[in-house]
Design a protein around this nucleic acid. Structure first.
Length: 430
RNA sequence: GGAGGACUAGUCUAAUCGGUAAGGCAGCGGACUUGAAAUCCGCCGGGCUAUGCCCAUCGGGGUUCGAGUCCCCGGUCCUCCGCCA
């Protein structure tokens, strides 16, 4: 959520950012409503003060046996006027909330302007694997263990069914990634895979991505489109101690996306599916630490790719390609030798205080003072389907089979680093 | 799904017949001290156009001059029953 005071003091900045992010939102309308609201609130406050003192006088007069009827009548009249003002405010409020919730986060100053074409490749690691034969795409290599037809029978098109070695490989990959994160000092969580409206609003998928999520109408619950939703909302409404920061969490979740409107685009094989598996990292940091944490989270994700030996590149997203809640985001893309193209396997985002405001996630400064909003970061570490695709294509043999043994030998759980925490104390105020 | 109970600040706990939220602990700052403890003082929910005022007792309505308190709808947690992997 955009800070109210920023909207009042520098609406042009908010307008520019919204335009850069290709978002249409009613900043002017909000400002008008805001000034109307403040006038109403000022008048109502004065009347309330009157009513409070009048009804206190009633109480005093009653006790002393005096005539309280006049005070009571005046108080009643003030109450009627208050009710009118309150009704008008109540009328304006939902619209103001709707408007402010539709305003996207402001990109950091170093984020390039423009759309996808302005994305900036900031680094590259390794090189494309070479073959003395024509490499095949994963859907050919995984015949028999990747079965979209079967998934179609169970759920419909664009769902995945893995079996045999592919199912096992995916399971081991999830465990391997989580173990790596634990040794980097993160705490593992296993959250609900459904989230309520407030949660999905806090992380910023609502209102903009409403059509991209699965909604269980009967219970008004959303299937999470990313683990970011569940894990970030673990601390919704909480006030942490400054000494608790940074809170570094990771967890496995499935992710559900309707992918409305994206049919026919990159839909082959494992490239774009309705349900996929992901290990997510979510960190809550002190506002001054989030930039450094963003780089550290990126390094954690790229570290996994390096251990797997996959050729990858890091892209700093331009404003127009940035998600609604992000202020700054790196996309991690790995090379798919069978498809001869880059596949996005991770987005590492710094949301600054945007989600923390929406979800009211704060910390109490050690030196006293008012609670302040934390900064939230999230990053995939990593998303499975495209990772599987690139891995399988990288480890293919000339006969069209996959060296699963060789691939699996990469999944060594590191011995270095901190041992997983037993029971970290993140007890919070709510 | 059913029955019962609970919900006041970081935490614990008060508030008369409905009368305008009182304290303890923890924490923070300061004084005293070689240092610490103890003690003392201040702060310790949010907001504003700020000597003051308004809001705030899980959320939303209602009754009332006035609601933590009474009524209605909902939420969360706990206990029990039912169902279920």
């Amino acid at each position: 959520m955009i800070d109210r005071n920023l909207l009042r003091n520098d609406p042009d900045l908010v307008k520019r950012s919204a335009r850069a992010k290709r978002c249409v939102c009613g900043i002017e309308e909000w400002l008008e409503l805001d000034s109307r609201m403040r006038a109403l609130s000022l008048e109502a406050d004065g009347l309330r003060a009157q009513r409070n003192s009048l009804s206190h006088r009633v109480s005093v007069l009653k006790k002393s046996g005096g005539d309280f009827r006049e005070a009571m009548e005046e108080s009643r009249l003030a109450g009627e006027r208050i009710a009118l003002l309150e009704a008008e405010m109540k009328n304006l409020e939902p619209r103001m909330t709707e408007l402010v919730l539709a305003m996207p986060n402001i990109p950091d100053p170093d984020v390039p302007e423009g759309g996808e074409e302005a994305n900036l490749e900031v680094s590259k690691w390794g090189g494309p694997p070479t073959f003395d034969f024509t490499p095949r795409p994963h859907w050919e290599l995984m015949k028999g263990v990747f079965d979209p037809e079967a998934a179609g029978v169970i759920a419909g098109s664009s769902f995945v069914l893995l079996r045999g070695w592919a199912a096992g490989l995916q399971r081991r990959l999830i465990g391997w990634m989580v173990e790596n994160h634990l040794r980097a000092g993160m705490e593992e969580v296993w959250p609900p895979f459904l989230a309520c409206r407030d949660s999905v609003t806090a992380t910023g998928q609502l209102p903009k991505l409403a059509d991209d999520m699965y909604l269980l109408e009967r219970d008004d619950l959303f299937l999470i489109p990313t683990g970011e939703v569940s894990i970030t909302n673990l601390y919704r409404g909480a006030t942490l101690r400054e000494s608790d920061l940074p809170v570094k969490l990771c967890g496995y979740t499935p992710c559900f996306r309707r992918e409305a409107g994206s049919y026919g685009k990159d839909t082959r094989g494992l490239n774009r599916v309705h349900q996929f598996e992901k290990v997510e990292m979510v960190w809550l940091t002190h506002p001054e630490e989030s930039h450094r944490a963003h780089e550290a989270m990126l390094a954690q994700a790229t570290g996994l790719l390096e251990k797997l030996g996959l050729h990858y590149r890091v892209v700093l997203l331009a404003a127009g390609d940035l998600s609604f809640s992000a202020a700054r985001c790196y996309d991690l893309e790995i090379w798919s030798p069978g498809q001869m193209k880059w596949l996005e396997v991770s987005s590492v985002s710094n949301c600054r205080d945007f989600q923390a405001r929406r979800g009211n996630i704060r910390f109490k400064p050690s030196g006293g003072g008012k609670p302040a909003f934390v900064h939230t970061l999230n990053g995939s570490g990593l998303a499975l389907p495209r990772l599987m695709a690139a891995l399988v294509e990288t480890w293919q043999r000339p006969d069209g089979t996959v060296d699963v043994e060789g691939l699996s030998s990469r999944l060594v759980i590191p011995q270095e680093g901190r041992a997983p925490q037993e029971q970290p104390d993140h007890s919070v105020y709510r």
